[in-house]
């Protein structure tokens, strides 16, 4: 176990996937590409293991699982186990040394962000794909709550589904390859996603931007009908669909809530042409770098103006219908059959 368990994003890159989880490694890589990401740091998987070892939580979990192993095949017991294990983790205090080091980073983050009233997002960063959503906490303020949310994120590696998955795959129960990203919350005017491909048909000549007022959660979760802009990569022509957006996600009391969008902006596009252009420009650049279509999440800071207002919180290869050649042959076959009676 290495001593260093907290990293600034700029210290990380794709190669650090196993050390800090995908999200953090990715944020690191994004920094290297020159993308503006919210300032923040990563807690490594070593950090998790150190916490589990020093607090004794790891041992307790191991014991609990051993005692209950034969009952764990049943779902209802998995639900009980999930609660019990999360209780074990959440009942533990952060060991003093870890606590101190974390606060040191946190204070430096405040300086970096130039914001004494800093509020952060505490997001899970799994190193492997794991079914069952791991938690993320938004709009966290004050050092103590950051500690608490970190522990909760670690606990969230033990959802019922995650337990079932580990049993099925014969994975060690107390192991959870989970990192954490702590990053500044951007005061979002609007936020959303951008894909450098039309995913439904694999049309690589287009970029599609979707967004809503407020934080990006409403777009990512698909709860609202967001604005949609389809931009042609070669000539930049835009096909806009501006929807009536009645709900948005905003900060509230150390968390987020769904609020009503003020009536006068419901029917307005949530990005202006300059902002759209910048989002598309950066997304295309990232696509060029990785040589594969990208699926990225963007946020526009309400207190800054473009290009400084544009922050990126996610970049990953886009999932889209790839079987283009197969599809072409299939379509040709269907067309040929048309001539038969």
């Amino acid at each position: 176990m290495s001593d260093k368990w907290i990293f600034w994003f700029e210290e990380l890159g794709t190669g650090d996937n196993d050390r800090v989880g995908k999200k953090c490694a990715n944020l690191g890589e994004m920094t290297r590409l020159g993308l503006r990401i919210p300032p923040g740091f990563a807690i490594s998987i070593d950090g998790y293991e150190r916490f589990m070892a020093e607090t004794g939580a790891g041992e307790e979990i191991r014991r609990y699982v051993q005692e209950n192993r034969e009952h764990l095949k049943e779902i209802k017991n998995q639900i009980i186990a999930s609660k019990a294990i999360r209780n074990i983790i959440e009942s533990k205090e952060m060991p003093p040394e870890m606590r101190e080091e974390l606060f040191r980073f946190y204070d430096q983050l405040k300086e970096r962000a130039g914001d004494k009233e800093l509020s952060v997002a505490v997001r899970s960063s799994g190193a492997v794909s794991m079914p069952g959503q791991m938690e993320s906490y938004l709009n966290v303020r004050w050092k103590e709550s950051v500690l608490q949310k970190m522990i909760q994120v670690w606990g969230s590696a033990f959802t019922t589904r995650a337990i079932a998955f580990r049993l099925e795959k014969g994975m060690a129960m107390e192991k959870a390859p989970i990192g954490i990203a702590v990053l500044k919350m951007v005061e979002a005017k609007s936020a959303g996603v951008v894909l450098t491909v039309l995913p439904t048909i694999g049309d690589l000549s287009k970029v599609v931007v979707e967004g809503n007022w407020g934080l990006g959660e409403s777009v990512v979760s698909g709860e609202v009908n967001p604005d949609q802009f389809i931009v042609d990569k070669s000539d930049g022509t835009v096909e806009s669909t501006v929807n009536r957006k009645t709900k948005m996600v905003v900060y509230h009391d150390g968390g987020t809530i769904t609020a009503n969008v003020p009536a006068e902006i419901q029917g307005k596009p949530c990005v202006d042409p300059e902002e759209l252009k910048e989002i598309v420009r950066v997304a295309k650049q990232v696509e060029d770098h990785f040589q594969t279509p990208q699926d990225m999440e963007w946020v526009l800071d309400r207190f800054q103006s473009i290009p400084d207002s544009l922050y990126w919180v996610q970049a990953r290869p886009a999932k889209y219908t790839k079987a283009k050649e197969k599809e072409s042959e299939y379509l040709a076959e269907l067309m040929t059959r048309m001539f038969k009676r």
Partner: peptide, 10 residues
């Protein structure tokens, strides 16, 4: 079937 159908629609 949406992949190829979408392309045909286009």
């Amino acid at each position: 079937q949406r992949g190829w159908f979408g392309r045909l629609m286009l």
